[in-house]
Amino acid sequence: MAVKIIESCVNCHACLPVCPSNAIYETKPHFMVDPKKCTECEGAFADFQCASICPIEGAILNSFGEAINPPGSLTGIPPEKMAAAMAELQAH
């Protein structure tokens, strides 16, 4: 039982100090979670602390491999709108 930080992490440090288990560490190319230390905040907090401050949608996965913050959930940008804007930029 552990969360996982994946490559879309931007190394902003926000999760590191809020982890109650000191399970997060700084490394290259991005921050990682030590699965032996991660408790998924059980018994400490109602919500995953790292995923509650992480600004990047999809950067932290739960133990089922699902994004805790799915696309659009943090920025409020509808995913199809974001895709359309990015496609528009690519076309140039």
Partner: peptide
């Protein structure tokens, strides 16, 4: 680098 809020004019990436 860390932030505690999100603003609609900012993109952390």
């Amino acid at each position: 680098p860390a932030c505690n809020i999100q603003c609609h004019y900012c993109n952390r990436k």
